[in-house]
């Protein structure tokens, strides 16, 4: 009997084997190979030549690597803070009984999330283009400006625009997740508090918010990993250039340009690992912050 179950249990290896084979070939091998390449100089035509730590030394002193990291972080923070707050407010509002047309609002707010990011990037690029963009035409039609504003030449504006696209795409998504979390909080509890005379704002801050904390932290952590990999939106918004003044050049765009348009595969791989280390650091930071907070509260 014992040997029989053991035999059956070993079937498990067969069940997980296909996944692991595919993962080794298409997941792990590429990462290890990139790691190997990050110690070489390779243009794709010759054989990779070993250069030791040179790529990493270059990376450390590469002004542009740090600049793209800054850009990525700036874009992420400017989009994620309003994303997580506005969506929370919306979730609470749409959870209220008096609001009409809840499901329509939910659908409309969520919709941009499933639209192809590349399409959104190009669409926004067209709308904000300089001399034929509809946004400028709109402002000129209203008489707010006389000459078209060269939006695409303003670094802060364009970086903000990337953040806006990300916000537009993700606030509805966050809202849906908050609503799912809110549905886990008993209505009776909230209504009891209101009957006791607590204002809605008070109820929100002293009951709803603490109960939603795990969901908020979950969203922060997952958005770090995604946020550090921003590529599609700035790429199509600027037609791949990351301009003006390299302000919309994200780290992954820099990685892509280095490896696949300047054909410095070795250095491109080093950028990938540099970025990975940054993501790991940020993830650890947010995890420890999460733990510290919960510990403090327990105390």
């Amino acid at each position: 009997m014992f040997s029989k179950t053991l035999q059956k249990d070993n079937y498990g290896y067969l069940f997980i084997a296909p996944f692991f084979i595919i993962f080794l070939v298409f997941g792990l091998y590429p990462i290890l190979y990139s790691f190997y390449l990050s110690f070489t100089d390779w243009d794709g035509f010759t054989t990779p030549a070993s250069v030791g730590l040179e790529n990493y030394l270059r990376l450390f002193g590469d002004f542009f690597f740090w600049k793209t990291l800054f850009n990525t972080l700036a874009i992420w923070i400017v989009s994620v803070i309003p994303q997580l707050t506005v969506s929370l407010v919306l979730a609470v509002v749409l959870h209220e009984k008096f609001v009409k047309g809840k499901s329509i609002f939910r659908a409309v707010f969520f919709f941009p999330n499933i639209v192809t990011a590349a399409s959104l990037g190009l669409l926004v690029a067209l709308i904000f283009s300089w001399q034929a963009g509809s946004f400028n035409q709109f402002l000129m039609g209203l008489g707010i400006i006389n000459d078209p504003v060269h939006w695409t030449d303003k670094p802060y504006f364009m970086r903000g625009l990337v953040s806006s696209i990300l916000f537009w795409q993700y606030f509805g998504y966050s809202m849906i997740i908050y609503i799912a979390g809110l549905q886990g909080i008993s209505r009776d509890l909230l209504e009891a508090a209101e009957i006791d005379g607590a204002s809605k704002v008070r109820v929100f801050f002293s009951i709803t918010l603490p109960l939603l904390k795990p969901i908020i932290l979950f969203q922060v952590v997952t958005s770090i990993i995604g946020g550090m990999q921003i590529f599609d939106q700035p790429y199509t918004l600027t037609n791949g250039s990351g301009q003006p003044d390299n302000a919309t050049l994200t780290s992954v765009m820099y990685l892509y340009d280095t490896a696949f348009t300047r054909y410095q595969y070795g250095y491109g791989s080093a950028i990938a690992f540099g970025l990975f280390i940054v993501i790991v650091i940020f993830s650890i930071l947010s995890f420890t912050m999460m733990n510290m907070r919960t510990k403090n509260e327990q105390n």
Binding site: F26, G27, Y29, P30, I31, L32, Y33, S34, F35, L37, I225, M228, Q229, F231, V252, L255, Y256, A259, Y265, G268, S269, A272, F273, L275, F276, I279, V280, S283
Partner: peptide, 11 residues
């Protein structure tokens, strides 16, 4: 936790 872009060149 591993970002997809890490293995881009290797892929």
């Amino acid at each position: 936790m591993v970002p997809q872009q890490l293995g881009l060149v290797g892929t």
